[in-house]
Amino acid sequence: MARFVVAKVGEIPRGEQKVVRVKGREILLLNVDDEYAALLNRCPHEGAKLLCGARVGLLESDEPGRFSYTRQGEFLRCPWHGWEFEIRTGQSWCDPKDTRIKNYDVKIEPGESLAKGPYVAESFPVHVEDSYIVIYL
């Protein structure tokens, strides 16, 4: 598995996301409370690009008329038909078993350790003093 350095830590604010390209794939990098997730930028349903998806929380209810809203920002709602996906796992909330967004291993690594190589950084230099978001593919 190769390591791809795709962004510098700090570049994507909490609750936001950006698209990076790795080996011809469009991957959506999302910052969830300063942890990162990497998802294919394509909805498994009808292929919408997920970049425009809404970052939302999880609305649950034990009983008609009662609402509990938690985990703000941990879900992505598809920009087309509104299916909800858990960002950490890529799983669809309504159909976790059979519907999921393809996801990739992602890590934060210090520039120092990257300096030992090997890694691929497509568009920017890596400095030992910074930390980077690395996708394993």
């Binding site: 609305l59 209810s61 038909h81 509104g82």
Partner: peptide
Amino acid sequence: KTWRGVRIEVPWIKEA
């Protein structure tokens, strides 16, 4: 199909 898109109207519906 509709449930997947508008589940937030009826969050007490937890399965298909």
